[in-house]
Nucleic acid binder design. Structure first.
Lengths: 161, 161
DNA sequence: TTTGAAACCGAGACGTC
DNA sequence: GACGTCTCGGTTTCAAA
């Protein structure tokens, strides 16, 4: 992968509506090679999928809650079961195993506090958890699916630009 | 919006590659009305954008760090400046103003701990922050851009299905 | 071996019934 | 909601660099 691939990815992370020909122009490439690079990156799994992003407000899920979880059961088995349970809840959009103080962190999206409370009850009904603490986001100041491309490992052969 | 719109959104949140005709079939609609519904939802801003999702591992940003921030300056002015600074860093993919103990929460993606340290130094060089605490994710168990559609406000006229 | 132009063909974007 | 048309863009081929 080189700088041109990076440019292509940068554009595709913003908008996949862009026609290959236009994209090629912006990147400074002609259509065919640009198209081939995209194909390759799809094959290689660099490009995972192409999806639609919706407006959380219009979908009635504007409230984000971060849920910190501590557990007693540090077994693989418990984690497996917990992962299964969490996967069932579409409200959980992110789920991390953490180092340090907290064991797991969830990002949950719901319409309002009442809905969060309902979600919470459904969750703890499904699985035993030692300690749960919820932090509410008042405002989402930034949210992007665009990963920084500056750390990409670049094939230097191509030289400048 | 009704149940059919919801079905359409569910599919588009998974994959925008799907041809309108195929999507229509899955939803149980013929092509034109399905296409028109999509158009409408784009106009209405329910569908925000269509983007490519990349593989964090391949892009060399597999480490997620949650950064909790406390500040002394609770002024609008400080927040404005802080937002500006944060917006400059592509490593910050999410940024929330929180209620309670912590004032702000960032999700930062980097290749490794060393890169996080470098990021951290660049950040605090740019703006005064009272207290910063970083929590590292060991594993990303779930990450989705698909919002739950169960809370959508549905026009009941259509009745069942 | 890689590139770019040009042709092919299917799908999207509408208008009309 | 079904057609039909028109157009544009993705895909492939092929000649040239």
């Amino acid at each position: 992968m080189d700088r041109l691939d990076r440019k292509i990815l940068r554009l595709l992370q913003e908008d996949t509506t862009l026609a290959v020909a236009d994209l090629a122009k912006k990147v400074g490439l002609s259509t065919t090679p640009c198209w081939r690079r995209i194909q390759k990156m799809e094959e290689d799994g660099v490009i995972r999928r192409r999806v639609a992003l919706l407006d959380p407000v219009k979908i009635n899920t504007k409230v984000t809650v971060f849920v910190s979880i501590r557990t007693n059961s540090h077994s693989m088995e418990w984690l497996r079961r917990f992962s299964e349970v969490v996967a069932e809840f579409p409200e959980v959009v992110e789920f991390y195993r953490m180092s340090g103080d907290v064991d797991y962190l969830l990002r949950v999206v719901v319409p309002d506090i009442a809905a969060y409370d309902a979600f919470y009850k459904r969750l703890i009904a499904k699985i035993e958890i030692r300690d749960v603490s919820s932090a509410f986001a008042m405002e989402q100041i930034k949210y992007t699916t665009q990963l920084p491309l500056d750390y990409m490992i670049i094939d230097q052969k191509t030289g400048e630009e």
